[in-house]
Design a protein around this nucleic acid. Structure first.
Lengths: 119, 119
DNA sequence: ATACTTTATTCAAGATTTTGAATATAGGTG
DNA sequence: CACCTATATTCAAAATCTTGAATAAAGTAT
């Protein structure tokens, strides 16, 4: 039964709305924590806690660049799981382009456009 | 964010080894509770509790036939989620043919062979 | 060094899950 | 009806999850 235990742990990592939202935001590549604050309006400590859960599950990894810390998904197959779940519910989340104004990371201030969550 | 909440509830239903095992057993059609007792060695009350979780999540439904009660999956798309998760872990569970000896339901006593979990 | 920014950790109270034990219910049989 | 069998429900203690508040740490800039 230990395979089921391993799977159960991964489902547990997905078992939270904020973590699902974070993973969706990471679909098109790494994002800094400030992005997630700006996108969702959660407090920083809260996001950091949820990111730790994803990291302990082995789903994301971290990279530091100056002041900012970027998270990325290291098991892209997890998006297959999320897509399959949307076949069950029949719904998909809206893009999160809105309310990204407050982010101050170098990727966002000025030059490039905000990346969307395209599903 | 309510879509994420709905998804999170479904992941929560999958977040338990016993429930994953039960769903695998239901891959090839309905099974009575006694099957699950025989297949996994869990006590009856325990299985019944896990089945209630799956039922409340809307993943399974029930049919009574005489003394026996048969559960079946009503959202087969959930198997797509489970298969996708096995792409993440790279492992798949073994068939559960073994230890089904003790089951006494009419489908098992004598006439037909036990159905396997074929993935 | 000092101050500031970004992110991480710790702590604790409340909520929820897990699990076993005991008991209840519902249908079948004699 | 009395009894048996198969399954469901209830209850409670232990474990875990959630969430906010406070604080720490690590890097940058002056």
């Amino acid at each position: 039964m230990e395979i089921y235990e391993q799977e159960a742990k991964l489902y547990k990592a997905l078992m939270h709305p904020a973590r699902l939202a974070i993973l969706d935001l990471l679909r098109d590549g790494e994002q800094c924590v400030c992005h997630m604050e700006a996108a969702f309006g959660y407090r920083q400590a809260y996001i950091s806690q949820q990111l730790m859960v994803l990291k302990e599950a082995g789903l994301v990894e971290v990279r530091r660049e100056g002041l900012n810390i970027y998270y990325r998904v290291v098991r892209p197959e997890i998006f297959g799981v999320m897509d399959a779940m949307r076949e069950v519910t029949g719904k998909r989340p809206a893009a999160v382009k809105s309310k990204l104004k407050a982010c101050t990371c170098p990727n966002c201030t000025g030059e490039h456009e905000i990346s969307l969550v395209q599903i």
